[in-house]
Amino acid sequence: MSAICRFIHAEKANFTIVLLCRVMKTARSSYYAWAAGLEVREARRRADMALAHEITVIHIASKGTYGVPRVSAELRRQGRPVNRKRVARLMREHGIAGHTRRTGRRSLTKQDPGAAPAPDLIGRDFHADRPGTRIVGDITYIPTA
């Protein structure tokens, strides 16, 4: 609908709005409602650009680490109350993303460099003459003292 209204707006100097709306199969009220919101949409776009600039400044000042929650909180601290969803939309549209921390999980194959290796009680001989005589397991993935 917006593309049709933009076309009608561009061609209204050459043709009447009534004719353009009839040819494009659009209600005149729809065109006039769209035209009435032009100034509001332009003001909103300018406000979004100014806010995006502020978000970029905050993001750069944080060395690229702040995401949506922290940027929103910083804007509120500066006296600029803005909805978190608007900040998220602007950051997404401008390709601004915060740095996420890694989780505290440990690798299963990495050993603690300060820990002594466990003693080899069966001498690497895993062959058992009878069932249940040599039972082994690995619990190195469980963090212990």
Rank of each mutant, 00 (worst) to 15 (best):
R84N: 08
G67S: 04
R45G: 04
H94K: 08
T100R: 09
A36W: 08
V71A: 02
Y66P: 01
T56I: 08
R70I: 00
A43F: 06
Y66D: 00
R84F: 09
T100S: 07
V82K: 05
V87Y: 09
E39S: 04
I60W: 04
E54C: 10
G37A: 03
A61C: 11
K63H: 15
V57P: 04
I96H: 05
R92F: 00
A47Y: 08
T100F: 09
G64P: 06
V82F: 03
G64L: 01
W34F: 08
W34G: 02
V87Q: 04
R76T: 12
R89H: 02
A35M: 02
R89W: 00
V87H: 03
R41D: 02
L90F: 07
M49P: 08
M91T: 13
R46Q: 05
V57M: 14
E54F: 09
R92Q: 06
S72M: 11
P81H: 14
E74D: 13
I55D: 05
T65P: 00
A73C: 12
G67E: 04
I58A: 10
H59A: 04
A52F: 14
G67V: 10
H59K: 07
E42T: 12
D48L: 02
P81D: 09
M91R: 03
R84Y: 09
V71R: 15
A36Y: 04
P69D: 12
V57D: 05
G98W: 13
A43N: 12
A47T: 07
I60F: 00
P69T: 09
I60R: 04
A47E: 14
V57A: 13
T65I: 06
T65N: 01
R44F: 04
V87W: 15
N83W: 07
V57W: 10
E93L: 08
S72K: 10
R41S: 02
R80W: 10
A50S: 11
V71P: 01
R45N: 07
R41K: 07
V71K: 10
G37T: 03
H53D: 07
K85C: 00
V82R: 08
D48P: 00
R70K: 14
K63A: 08
A35V: 00
H59V: 03
